[in-house]
């Protein structure tokens, strides 16, 4: 039975916001009702961007948008090597070093960790970067190549925008997408398995 999202009479971006909430709430079979072409196009585009199947029918000025999926539980990374069906492993990088003790050693370790991860046959679904962890994703960092390799096989990287601003390095981001606390939180909550470094 499809979950109904009634977005009739609502102006953009509300219909998309409601559709997003339904998807984030775990629904995989949704019928979105809208009453104008702008909302129809936006909801279709949003659902497609999330890896969902979309089908539109129109009756008496109401558009019914059937949204199914994403096809696998792996979200937008569904069609890539990352994230086998049913496993959403998230690796959170909260610092630009690994472990406590010596900072220099921590820097060597995190570099080795990421390059080993890039070579492993079990890439995570997503990686999130916050606090000084964002520095790992900057242009010129000795970790950026490993992260790019991971991104190229479909691992999504969410880099905390507030943190980039705090350190004044947003322009230097070399890999991943600038993200926000909402998406970082949603990623961590929807992880089947999360590892914080």
């Amino acid at each position: 039975m499809a979950e109904i999202v009634d977005a009739r009479g609502l102006a953009c971006p509300e219909p998309v916001v409601k559709t997003r909430s339904a998807l984030k709430g775990g629904a995989r079979d949704i019928e979105v009702l809208v009453d104008n072409p702008t909302a129809r196009d936006n909801v279709c585009r949003f659902a497609s961007s999330q890896g969902c199947e979309v089908e539109v029918s129109e009756e008496e000025d109401i558009f019914r948008i059937a949204v199914t999926g994403p096809a696998s539980e792996a979200g937008t990374g569904a069609d890539t090597a990352a994230g086998d069906a049913g496993t959403r492993r998230v690796i959170a990088l909260a610092s630009d070093t690994m472990g406590r003790g010596d900072e220099e050693l921590g820097g060597i370790l995190i570099k080795a960790f990421l390059s080993t991860l890039a070579d492993s046959d079990q890439p995570p679904w997503r990686m999130v970067f916050f606090n000084s962890g964002v520095k790992l994703a900057l242009e010129g960092a000795d970790t950026v190549q490993s992260l790019r390799n991971l991104e190229s096989i479909g691992v999504e990287m969410l880099v905390c925008g507030t943190c980039l601003d705090y350190f004044g390095v947003k322009e230097e981001l070399g890999v991943g997408a600038v993200s926000n606390m909402y998406d970082i939180l949603t990623t961590m909550l929807s992880a089947t398995n999360s590892i914080t470094i």
């Binding site: 102006a11 953009c12 971006p13 998309v16 104008n36 072409p37 702008t38 196009d41 936006n42 909801v43 279709c44 585009r45 949003f46 659902a47 961007s49 997408a177 600038v178």
Partner: peptide, 17 residues
């Protein structure tokens, strides 16, 4: 920055239509 990404996620205002 980020305009095309947001448009790709359906953040197009009614005014554009």
């Amino acid at each position: 920055k980020r305009t095309r990404e947001m448009a790709g996620m359906g953040m197009v205002p009614a005014g554009a239509h």
